[in-house]
Design a binder for these strands. Structure first.
Length: 345
RNA sequence: GGGAGUGUCGCAUAGUGGCUAUUGCAGCAGACUGUAAAUCUGUCACCUCACGGUAACGGUGGUUCGAGUCCAUCCACUCCCA
């Protein structure tokens, strides 16, 4: 799919979009949401933020990812998923219905369907069966969601999730099914679970050709700066990822000229700012040598400064992407940036 | 002057006759993608891209088939008595 076409199509939407979104909230999980073009739905959805002093929409996940990441302590059945607590051994059953209820109570503006995120690699039969179960779960999610109302004074929005592992035919089939639900936004799950980036892009491309372009397309769990740019080119509007914060805590900094392992000896005597081009005063105020010192000394402040830096970089990246799309220069800018951000400094 | 003790890869440690000498810290590097993660992995005497090779338990000498381990002696340090 030609990038330029996507870019111009998206640029039309941008005129009526509100500003980019980043929400981070601690509600059981810490969650990051990046929204390049927040479509109409996002404006109308806003609500939870009022209670926590945030002026941007907030999203909660369903626990579907935990079905994947906690594979050792859970059991999947048609009814739902049984989890066992690693803390006290207590057992909990998550069903499409009670996950909707929980997210109603939390009250996020955007809530996610309960799905199974398949691992990689995944054989065809398992992927197919899992996809169908996710679809059946989606039916149960939408039914419960539609027969209930928010318990606060604002609307909530349910996003369904495309699955299908790394099989094009399954992805296409799932995308058709999800699009047919006619919700106000759609999500793509089950990617960035260890597959090569090229496979991820191939799946994104297949799915984006089917999901309507006038509704947000949300790619869950992605990713590196390069992943984000490539997926924007393919038509993705929203992202969320632990990478900017987790990698920050482990000493990895992202900048537009490449990434840095701040723990490396080479930064020990570099007293220049962390990132002179950053929008964040934190990144301009502290030096690389100081930040390295904090990491080497085991000071938690190091992870905090690095997290602030990385989050501001991610926000700059998606904000700049939007500007470039509107200006019609996204494609060439993207190619240049992908090379830059993939460089180790 | 007399006596007791201790010396193991930067630091700290395990190892009292047997095969490639422990472990931790520090150091160096890598990983991390819808957060059970301030985490995990590798490396960490010397030579070699690597395969691999050569060393090494303060020094020297000895006992023994075999010594970080036992003996002698020297050196360094610590403590006690003068």
């Amino acid at each position: 799919m030609p990038v330029g076409t996507i870019g111009s199509v998206k640029a039309v939407h941008f005129k009526e979009l509100e500003e980019q979104i980043m929400a981070q909230i601690i509600l059981g999980n810490t969650y990051h949401l990046y929204l390049r073009p927040g479509l109409d739905i996002i404006k109308k959805a806003g609500g939870l933020h009022k209670f926590i002093g945030w002026n941007r929409p907030i999203l909660t996940d369903s626990g579907g990812y935990q079905v994947y990441s906690l594979s050792g302590t859970r059991k999947i059945k048609e009814e739902g998923v049984k989890f066992q607590s690693h803390i006290d051994g207590s057992r909990h059953l998550f069903t499409p219905e009670n996950v909707m209820d929980t997210q109603r109570i939390i009250g996020a503006d955007i809530i996610m369907a309960f799905d199974e995120c398949t691992p990689y690699p995944c054989d065809y039969k398992y992927a197919k069966d899992s996809m169908h179960m996710t679809h059946r779960w989606l039916d149960r999610c939408t039914q419960r969601f539609d027969e209930t109302t928010g318990i606060y004074d604002y609307e909530q929005t349910l996003f369904p999730i495309v699955q299908g592992s790394t099989y094009k035919d399954l992805r296409a089939q799932s995308a058709e099914y999800i699009a047919g639900k006619n919700r106000k936004g759609n999500a793509i799950g089950g990617l960035s679970v260890g597959e090569p980036a090229e496979e991820m892009y191939a799946m994104t491309e297949v799915v984006c050709e089917i999901l309507p372009s006038d509704k947000p397309r949300y790619l869950m769990g992605v990713g590196t700066p390069a992943n984000i740019l490539e997926n924007i080119a393919l038509g993705i509007d929203m992202f969320d990822c632990v990478m900017p914060t987790r990698n920050a805590r482990n000493g990895m900094l992202f900048t537009q000229h490449g990434f840095i392992n701040i723990k490396n000896r080479k930064w020990a005597d570099d007293f220049s700012p962390i990132d002179t081009e950053s929008d964040s005063s934190t990144s301009q105020f502290h030096s690389k040598a100081y930040l390295r010192h904090l990491f080497i000394s085991g000071e938690r402040l190091g992870g905090q400064i690095a997290s602030i830096h990385n989050l501001s970089f991610y926000m700059w990246l998606v904000g700049e992407a939007r500007k470039q799309i509107i200006a019609g220069s996204f494609s060439s800018w993207k190619d240049k940036m992908v090379k830059q951000v993939s460089t180790r400094l």
